[in-house]
Amino acid sequence: MNARDVETRTRSWLFTPATRPERFANAGRAGADVLIVDLEDAVRPEEKDTARRQLRNLLSQPFGSSAALAVRINTPNSRNGLNDLAALLDAEFQPAYIVIPKVEAAQTVLQVEALLCEVASDARVVPLVESRKGIVVLPEVLAVASRVAAVMFGAGDYAGDVGVHADSFALSVARVQISAACAVSDVRAIDAPCFEIANSGALEEEIRFAAGNGFDGKAAIHPSHVRSINAAMTPNAAKIDWAHRVIDAAREGAAVIDGRMVDEAIAREARRVLSRA
Rank of each mutant, 00 (worst) to 15 (best):
D5Q: 07
V6P: 01
V6K: 01
R9V: 11
E22N: 07
A32V: 09
I36M: 10
D38Q: 03
A51W: 06
L58K: 03
L59V: 10
S65Y: 06
A67W: 00
L82C: 03
D90Y: 00
Y97V: 04
I100R: 00
K102V: 05
V103G: 03
A106S: 14
Q107F: 11
L110P: 13
V112T: 05
L116N: 00
V119Y: 05
E130M: 01
S131E: 04
M152D: 01
G156M: 08
V162A: 08
G163M: 01
V164K: 07
H165K: 14
A166D: 03
S172L: 06
S179W: 02
A183G: 11
A183E: 01
I190W: 04
D191W: 00
A192G: 12
A192F: 00
P193E: 09
F195C: 04
I197R: 05
N199V: 05
E205D: 15
E205S: 12
E205M: 03
R208I: 13
A220H: 13
V226G: 10
N230K: 00
M233W: 05
A238Q: 07
D241C: 12
W242E: 04
R251C: 10
I257A: 10
I257Y: 11
D258E: 14
A265P: 08
A265V: 08
R268V: 04
A277D: 06
